[in-house]
Amino acid sequence: MSTVDKVRTISEPIAEELGYDLVDVEYVKEGKHWFLRLYIDKENGVDLDDCALYSERIEEVLDTIQPDPIPHAYYLEVSSPGAERPLKTEKDFQNAVGKYIHLTLHEAVEGESVYEGTLKEWNTDDLVITIKIKTRRKDIVIDTSKIAKARLAIEF
């Protein structure tokens, strides 16, 4: 099991207990330092106090687990996923229906491998995104297996 998976398993129940959704976990090396980043959210968004509370609780738990699930010294960061949060889970996509999203695809659909538009429908097999082409709108059906990355986007 990867470090990210171990931390997610430990962190999700604590997030739920405090009323948060654990959106994402990253364990990355930047320069000579390791960073453990946990992204949390809740219905009306999180603030600095939410991040501090969750950080304290996670730190208490991670410091007591033996053997240590994290192999290196690291900096712990807890934050909001931001306005352009990633969409990774079924729940993320379900919650994004009706919202503006950005998709990067492994394989082109209708000649394009990047789309931005409103997520109209979603199920485990495919999704429908409504894109704007000049003054008209068009629905594109995309097989979910072709999605490399997805995130919420800000519409301009």
Rank of each mutant, 00 (worst) to 15 (best):
S11Y: 07
D143C: 04
V128S: 04
K120M: 01
G111P: 08
P13I: 02
H33E: 13
E110F: 09
S11N: 05
F35C: 03
E90T: 10
P67D: 01
V78P: 07
L76Y: 06
I142E: 09
V97G: 00
Y27A: 10
K99P: 02
L48P: 00
V97Y: 04
E43G: 14
A73D: 15
E60R: 15
A108C: 01
I142S: 10
E77H: 07
A150M: 03
E60T: 14
G19V: 08
K6E: 10
Y39R: 06
D68A: 14
P71T: 05
Y39E: 12
C51L: 10
I10W: 10
K138E: 15
E121Y: 14
E43P: 04
L48R: 12
V109F: 07
R85G: 13
Y20L: 10
V46L: 04
R8Y: 06
A73V: 12
H102N: 11
G82V: 06
G45D: 05
E30Q: 15
E30H: 15
P69V: 08
I140D: 14
E30Y: 14
T104P: 00
K138I: 12
V7T: 09
K6R: 14
I101W: 10
K32C: 03
I70M: 03
Y54G: 05
G117N: 03
G117H: 05
